[in-house]
Design a protein around this nucleic acid. Structure first.
Lengths: 108, 108
DNA sequence: TTAAACTAGTTTGTTTTACAAACTAGTTGT
DNA sequence: ACAACTAGTTTGTAAAACAAACTAGTTTAA
């Protein structure tokens, strides 16, 4: 991911991190993101993002039946995805430093 | 600014903060952003952003002659712009908390 | 003196993000 | 049978950020 795309693509890193940490399907991921404070996140944002990540080979999926409704598509992170996540974490840390350096001049 | 737009609009907050803290013109702002670590920022990103902010009434401008080249357009933050900057700072803090809460589950 | 390099800002077109909104379809409860 | 919930897809749109090309003034060096 290019450094500048990070400004837009923060959701991507969050999704990769959640998928790495737990076996999860799309609908549940939307609820999880909302619980983490992204209260306005909707399926129309997450599902296309999951499709993009899978196409890029950063995650894989397998469909399993649900006891409560239609089939669930579970996602799993790949080795490439884990590498991408590490890159994201580095760039996220460095973004915080840069932005805070700019903002701190103000708050004093 | 909507919470979700923050994911894209981080540059906007940085630009407002820099303009508040110093009398600056567009070309100089590009250099300043680069010095702060946004090394790939170019005029094609900053100038349209400045035009948008001025149209929204968050900054004003006045053109002054330069000793070194064409006229410079200096920018100044408005009261509305300062309010917007405070909003941005609040949302930026809360974004850091949310994203870090997601990522920290991973790093352990 | 003219051409390169630098300063300063604008404009056009493109890709990508994120979203709203509408949709299909299965299951549960009333 | 109908609403509410679960689960995922698709279409169209607005905005962000950028690349690239452009105009135009000034300075420096060949």
């Amino acid at each position: 991911m290019k450094e500048t795309q990070l400004l837009k693509g923060i959701l991507e890193g969050c999704v990769l991190s959640i998928i790495k940490e737990q076996r999860i399907y799309g609908y549940e991921l939307v609820q999880t993101m909302r619980n983490y404070g992204f209260t306005t996140i909707v399926g129309g944002t997450i599902y296309p993002l999951l499709q993009k990540l899978e196409k890029q080979g950063l995650i894989t999926s397998s469909e399993l039946t649900s006891p409560d409704g239609p089939n669930r598509k579970y996602f799993f992170i790949t080795t490439e995805g884990e590498q991408q996540l590490e890159d994201f974490k580095d760039q996220w840390s460095s973004l915080i430093v840069k932005v805070n350096r700019i903002l701190e001049k103000n708050g004093e």
